[in-house]
Amino acid sequence: VVEAIKDLVQDCNFDCNDDGIQLQAMDNSHVALVSMKLSTGAFSPFRCDRNIALGINLNSLMKVLRAAGNDDILTLKAEDQPDSLNLVFESPGQDRMSEYDIKLMDIDQEHLGIPETEYAATISLPSAEFQRICRDLSALSESVSIEASKDGVKFSCSGDIGNGSVTLRPHTNVEDESKSTSIALTEPVNLTFSLKYLVNFCKASSLSGSVQLCLSNEVPLLVEFKMGAGYLRFYLAPKIGD
């Protein structure tokens, strides 16, 4: 998760309570927002005696996380009114244990109220497919138009060297649900977004085999990666004409 969001947001409050750990942060330009939830089910055990916000610089956190082995068991601990977050990595065979503390910071964060939205179009597709489309089209242009109709979803762009488009049609993979593409639509939508941000969101592709795109005309796009016990959501403000 940290790897997936660290290029978008730098200083974040990890809000801990009985439900788990949540994070909401906007990028510096206020164009994109990250919203993450790791429910208690993601941890074993999880204990939180009182609500607490852990202000963490993600670059610092990454420096420490890189010291962990892929299969290590990670324990995160913070005291009441903490100055630091304690991280312990234990190898699966328990023959190696490393321990780090990283300094916490006070982050005065504006929490945005995200209205409950009934989106006009909800598209599920393999996350690798979405990543490929964003990468391919970003070679041609800074922006992509996403046009959803009952026939399919079309990603198109135009730039100095020419233009390009990718159209996906609904498709069911009976063996692997995450490889299916589905489109639920109440009305057609057509919106334009910055590819730079979408390419950035796709760093979360390794967290989930499928991704959900939720669109309504003239509102921010929601890109959601569902995780076993939580989610990673990205909101992106559209580009709007005159």
Partner: peptide, 14 residues
């Protein structure tokens, strides 16, 4: 060309 909107115009600050 279309202009980039910011989230503040869609989401409410508390």
């Amino acid at each position: 060309p279309p202009k980039q909107a910011t989230l503040g115009s869609f989401f409410k600050l508390p």
